[in-house]
């Protein structure tokens, strides 16, 4: 549905996005992970047509996105820095305006979401807290019912209860009206179960694209006496090592075959799973 071909974005001398070929299918929920400055917001902005590519292309159902109203009315990006209106705008006025601008906008559903997030209807945008502003962004994003809906850290500042309301509303609406979502997040453990597939951006490049559930099985922590562990992991993809006295723990990426599992058993090494968040940290360069 949305396709990039050799897409590049540069800001002056800085390359924010190196040539990227990406194709997202209709009707899936994608997660976009990356460290601060990895290029997530740049990618989302260019996919939404908020800015032009420096080189290459972004097409939506075959047509270029930038300055193409037919495409951009079917794409909705909610940015973490707002952009929904002026501080003095009333929430209800912003929703009324969105309903006029977007043919697919469901004004009644937006009203329901305001209630579910317990947002004060009579308030202005400027009087909302950070978390309330995010909840309002989610309200606009979901009610847009856009074929491609993107949230840039939709949960920023939301408390735990609001984040659950967000997850429930997203899933319920997705099940009722399947469409494509791309969500960037730093709350990996909490939000990743919502994703079918994750994309990891690192330093402006797509580092990995994989089904979330497959990624969960890809990391293995090997623990035991240091020399035995070293022998065992030679030839495997090692992401990280930690030592505690004579014991060593090595994080290996790529899963283990049966032969390696047998060898580990015979050597008395302990094999343990690795959390997705830890895999992400290791894959993107480890701790500073």
């Amino acid at each position: 549905m949305i396709t990039t071909s050799a897409l590049q974005v540069r800001y002056g001398d800085t390359t924010a996005l190196h040539p990227l070929d990406l194709d997202l299918s209709a009707g899936r929920i994608y997660g976009l992970l990356g460290r601060n400055g990895a290029g997530k917001t740049t990618l989302l902005s260019v996919l939404a047509g908020f800015r032009a590519p420096s080189a290459g292309s972004v097409t939506f159902d075959g047509a270029p996105v930038f300055e193409n109203a037919a495409a951009t009315t079917r794409i909705c990006l909610i940015r973490d820095d707002g952009g929904l209106g002026d501080p003095t705008d009333k929430l209800t006025d912003i929703l009324d305006m969105a309903a006029i601008l977007r043919p697919t906008f469901d004004r009644a559903f937006a009203g329901e979401l305001l209630d579910r997030f317990a947002l004060p209807r009579r308030s202005t945008l400027g009087r909302l807290s950070r978390g309330q502003r995010s909840a309002f962004g989610v309200t606009v994003g979901l009610a847009s019912r856009a074929a491609l809906t993107m949230f840039d850290e939709a949960h920023l500042g939301m408390d735990a209860a609001a984040r659950k309301v967000f997850a429930d509303a997203l899933l319920a609406d997705y099940l009722a009206r399947p469409r494509t979502f791309l969500l960037s997040t730093h709350l990996i453990e909490e939000q990743s179960p919502l994703f079918e597939q994750v994309l990891i951006l690192h330093q402006g490049r797509l580092l990995l694209r994989e089904d979330l559930d497959d990624l969960r099985g890809r990391g293995v922590a090997v623990t035991g006496p240091a020399t035995l562990v070293d022998d065992f992991v030679s030839g495997l993809t090692v992401l990280a090592e930690r030592r505690l006295g004579p014991t060593k723990e090595v994080t290996v990426f790529g899963g283990l075959d049966d032969e390696h599992r047998r060898l580990a058993g015979r050597a008395g090494l302990t094999l343990g799973p690795v959390a997705v968040q830890d895999l992400f940290i290791h894959l993107t360069g480890g701790l500073p």
């Binding site: 929920i29 659950k164 899933l171 319920a172 179960p193 919502l194 079918e196 979330l212």
Partner: peptide
């Protein structure tokens, strides 16, 4: 919906 996970999973 109950467990807040992706339907494909």
């Amino acid at each position: 919906a109950h467990y807040r996970i992706n339907p494909a999973t």
